[in-house]
């Protein structure tokens, strides 16, 4: 029943809704119910806001010894993404080759399968990040129309 613990966070896991402290304007992702700066003064004054549509890679790593459930993706890229306003989010970077990733690279969120609870269990969906799609043709003749 581990699906339940993620079900209650679908706003965050599916749509990346963050919270913003209406006192000081700091944005939190994952959402916080209490502002780290304003603390008690922020209680009940945190509002839900969407994150900016894109961010940049603050740091990253190419994982060769991955967690169980990620074997088919090794080597996979984990990164900390910085959004405008300073919010930082950890996630996987997909749809590019590990050697293409660099600090400062622009990425946008994509909706992907993150984990699954075995073959019979719940599938956990959520955000990952991908570079904006740009034409990369490895083999021109295969990629062009007949």
């Amino acid at each position: 029943m581990a699906g339940v613990r993620f079900w209650r966070e679908f706003d965050t896991r599916y749509r990346m809704l963050a919270t913003r402290c209406s006192q000081c304007g700091l944005v939190y992702f994952p959402p916080r119910t209490v502002c780290r700066k304003c603390r008690r003064r922020s209680v009940g004054k945190m509002e839900k806001v969407p994150l900016p549509p894109q961010g940049t890679v603050l740091s990253y790593t190419v994982v060769h010894q991955g967690l169980k459930g990620f074997d088919a993706q090794v080597p996979y890229v984990m990164a900390i993404i910085e959004f405008e306003g300073g919010v930082t989010v950890l996630g996987q970077v997909v749809d590019c080759d590990p050697e293409d990733v660099a600090i400062g690279m622009e990425v946008k969120p994509v909706f992907r399968r993150v984990r699954e609870e075995g073959e019979a269990g719940v599938i956990h969906y959520g955000y990952k990040f991908a570079p904006p799609c740009f034409p990369v043709c490895v083999d021109e003749s295969l990629a062009s129309p007949e």
């Binding site: 990253y60 790593t61 994982v63 984990m78 900390i80 996630g91 996987q92």
Partner: peptide
């Protein structure tokens, strides 16, 4: 667990990101 490991981060990968930066 909820916001790092769930997404595939190992402890080594987190330290690797510190190292990279």
């Amino acid at each position: 667990q909820e916001w790092e490991v769930f997404f595939g981060a190992t402890l080594a990968s987190l330290y690797a990101m510190m190292a990279r930066r």
